[in-house]
Design a protein around this nucleic acid. Structure first.
Length: 551
RNA sequence: GCCCCAGUAGCUCAGUAGGAAGAGCGGCGGCCUCCUAAGCCGCAGGCCGAGGGUUCGAGUCCCUCCUGGGGCGCCA
């Protein structure tokens, strides 16, 4: 990775400066090299002199000169310059850059991999919406973030498991079942109301109709009681199937599906006993509480209701116990919507109470998606029935565009999604800009198959144009970007890189004819195109998007 | 009232462990005899919400305030 190579040169130069007495012996900052925004400042820049000038008792500029003069020779770097107020700027060697095309081709898929994870076991849990309705647009955002994060962690040498947590226990599922049962009875001509807090969406009526066809009137015998278990399970199963279909539409594939019910009686009972033994449990007002206020939280939280039934929070503690202590993940990443934000501190406190380092649990909160239609806000509530489903949006704008759009904003950013705009602007969506670049490359390679069938012996040292080398520079960014995005758990860096890469390619395309009368040059450029196509395809792959050969 | 998140170009948003203000869209003006014009080139557009502080240096860190979103259930 180039940044590391440059960093090593800087560190070596700094050590030499110390040995020469130009710099006192101080501990060197680990990371000083970055990519400047402006090309005049070179390909990489180190701020080491600015950071050490005070300790060295000299001016940043003088220290920069002292260090720059001691940068070891390297075939990577063509020029080292000192610039005010004390930056050391590096310009990469054109010949070395051109050679990297061979390197990218040789490495293939391995080029996008950076083994910093060392096989660490990481679980990524995302979406995990209740099986009480179809997936909403907000779930799509969680999906895009979680799925891409999982890809990034895999690319950085982690052993990744993607999990969907099925909330198939608890009050919400019962309310859902009760609604279904009421609808079922209504379809049989009974005058019953849906229960308070019911899921009033049309889809529950559809589901009741399905149940009626399948089961006839056999549940009417249960008239006055709660929803019959068989109908309840039927409803859950059908909703889950629906969710699986929606996920598949977005191209998400899970390694495991974890049922909340399966936490009972074990490991739930063990967890409750552990918390009790450790003194984090209190009984008051007929309920069992987790005494999180003793751990610095605002308040205590109920684990077991006065009616004897565990809360969602209790399930979640048992669930995380299972993740860490039964399955033994080194790290767990949960992707939650902002409506669960208040749940984060107590979840961390609970994990800590179980003796697990809370740093091992990373909870990424993504802000909610505000849906708009023609500038007007659309309220979305699963229970109230006004729903814009993820499926509707995917069918309207396509899975690739959805993913790209969801990924283009940092999880912490609020997001407006205007359905009309998304559909209308689809031709100008950056996703097409990026995919079009890939299709163009495929087109060129197809065109070349007849004229220059074999370019394996192409000499990449012929690549000397600015736009050619600018493209190579973009290719070399990918490993750095993958590492950064995985370390910071920020998948939104990928779409921006994809746009930069596509821009560099389009620019190259406009200025450089690839397949021409000049056969040696054609061969060299075909290698560049092939390398770029691979890098772009890998970038799109990390985002879970397709890389079309034709558009 | 308390807690979390955000406020950067007309709009939607980036800004890679403080370091040298960006992209896309929209606007205006150019470019197809040629491997895909879903493309390229140029122009315009900013007191980075406000005010203090730390620092050689702040969009980035700290404090106060303003605006918007989310939370503060024996719902999930």
């Amino acid at each position: 990775m180039v940044r590391r190579d440059i960093e090593a040169l800087v560190q070596e130069a700094a050590r030499r400066a110390m040995d020469a007495g130009a710099l006192p012996h101080v501990s060197l900052p680990e990371s000083t090299v970055e990519r400047p925004q402006r090309p005049e400042h070179g390909d990489y820049a180190s701020n080491i002199a600015l950071r050490l000038a005070r300790a060295a008792g000299t001016t940043p500029l003088a220290l920069a000169e002292a260090i720059a003069a001691r940068i070891p020779e390297s075939d990577i770097v063509a020029r080292v310059e000192v610039a005010p107020p004390g930056f050391i700027n590096f310009r990469l060697s054109p010949a070395w850059l051109a050679r990297q095309v061979e390197e990218v081709l040789r490495q293939g898929d391995a080029f996008a991999r950076v083994d910093v994870g060392r096989g660490q076991r990481v679980q990524v849990e995302y979406v995990s919406a209740n099986p009480t309705g179809p997936l909403t647009v907000a779930a799509g955002r969680g999906l895009a973030i979680g799925d891409t994060l999982a890809n990034l962690l895999e690319a950085t040498g982690h052993q990744v498991e993607r999990e969907y947590y099925i909330n198939d226990a608890g009050t919400q599922t019962e309310t859902f079942a009760a609604t279904l049962f009421a609808r079922y009875r209504q379809l049989h001509g009974q005058a019953v109301e849906v229960p308070p807090g019911a899921y009033t969406g049309e889809y529950v009526i559809d589901l009741a109709r399905e149940a009626k066809e399948r089961f006839g009137d056999r549940f009417l015998a249960y008239a006055e009681g709660p929803c019959p278990p068989e109908l309840h399970d039927f409803g859950m199963q059908r909703m889950l199937e629906r969710i699986r279909e929606d996920l598949a539409l977005m191209g998400a594939h899970y390694d495991s599906w974890f049922s909340e019910r399966s936490l009972y009686p074990e490991p739930y009972q063990t967890v409750m006993r552990l918390l009790e033994e450790r003194g984090y449990v209190a009984r008051k007002e007929g309920a069992v509480w987790f005494t999180s206020s003793a751990l610095g939280e605002d308040k205590d939280n109920v684990l077991v209701r006065s009616n004897g039934r565990p809360t969602y929070f209790a399930s979640d503690i048992a669930y995380h116990y299972h993740k860490f202590l039964v399955r033994g993940y080194d790290r767990v990443v949960d992707i939650w919507g902002a409506d669960h934000q208040g749940h984060v501190p107590r979840m961390k406190a609970a994990v800590a109470a179980l003796g697990i380092d809370p740093e091992r649990l990373v909870i990424i909160i993504h802000q909610l998606v505000t849906l708009k239609r023609g500038g007007e806000e659309v309220r979305v509530s699963k229970r109230a029935g006004e729903i814009v489903t993820l499926r509707e949006v995917v069918e309207e704008v396509g899975a690739d565009a959805c993913r790209f759009f969801f990924l283009s904003r940092a999880p912490n950013s609020h997001m407006d999604f205007d359905l009309e705009l998304a559909a209308r602007q689809s031709a100008e969506n950056p996703v097409y800009y990026v995919q079009y670049a890939h299709a163009r490359m495929a087109g060129i390679l197809a065109h070349a198959r007849e004229r220059v069938p074999d370019y394996a012996d192409g000499d990449v040292s012929l690549l000397r144009e600015d736009v050619e080398l600018a493209l190579v520079r973009q290719l070399l960014r990918l490993p750095e970007l993958v590492e950064t995005a995985a370390r910071k758990l920020e998948p939104h860096l990928l779409p921006y890189y994809a746009i930069d890469l596509a821009t560099a390619f389009h620019d190259f395309y406009e200025r450089c004819r690839v397949v021409s009368e000049d056969v040696p040059l054609s061969k060299a450029r075909l290698k560049l195109v092939a390398a770029t196509k691979g890098v772009l395809a890998r970038t799109l792959g990390l985002m879970g998007m397709s890389a079309p050969d034709r558009m």
